[in-house]
Design a protein around this nucleic acid. Sequence first.
DNA 1: CTTTTGATGCCCT
DNA 2: GGGCATCAAAAGA
Length: 192
Amino acid sequence: MTAAADLRLDFTQPPQVLARRLIGARLTLDGVGGRIVETEAYDAGDPASHSFSGPSARNAAMFGPVGRAYVSRIYGVHLCLNVVCGPEPGGAVLIRAIEPLVGIEDMRIRRGADAPRALCAGPGRLCQALGVTMAHNHVSLTAEPFVLEPPVAPLDIAVGPRIGITKAVDRPWRFALAGSAYVSRRFPGPGA
DNA sequence: CTTTTGATGCCCT
DNA sequence: GGGCATCAAAAGA
């Protein structure tokens, strides 16, 4: 009965490993959500990570128990949802895009948009669509109101550099479901 | 289609 | 005061 154990989520794994494992996982908040199709890893000691300069009021969740949410505000406007993880404090996986599956009407209302691809393609967008707020900071992702289920079977994963950062730009720590139309930005095609 | 730019809150120096 | 793990709207090609 342990064939599925290979896919089980282990939040003590390094962010680069868990970020891969989370592709295809099903995430819902109060019954609204879908399949994770894009993530990024932020490691302890990673210059691009919010945890790089050590614990602070803002990033405290990244130094707390694994398996919980780290919610942060960026550009003063948007929220980002992370999964705290890793063998040492300071690691997290940023959830960047979700393929909408359930609660789509709620998402449309919250987002003020109709196109399925405009609902959850981007960290700020998916937080708005799922109803994530700063009140979810430090909240466990493995208990209500969240449901987080690993993928049923291994999936084809695309890898590339992370987006929107200015440090450690070249680390290939962005992961996505290969060929998905719901990612925030396309990956470079085979031709270039 | 692509590139550019303003809005906006909070942490850090 | 600078800079940011973004988004949407506007302008150009």
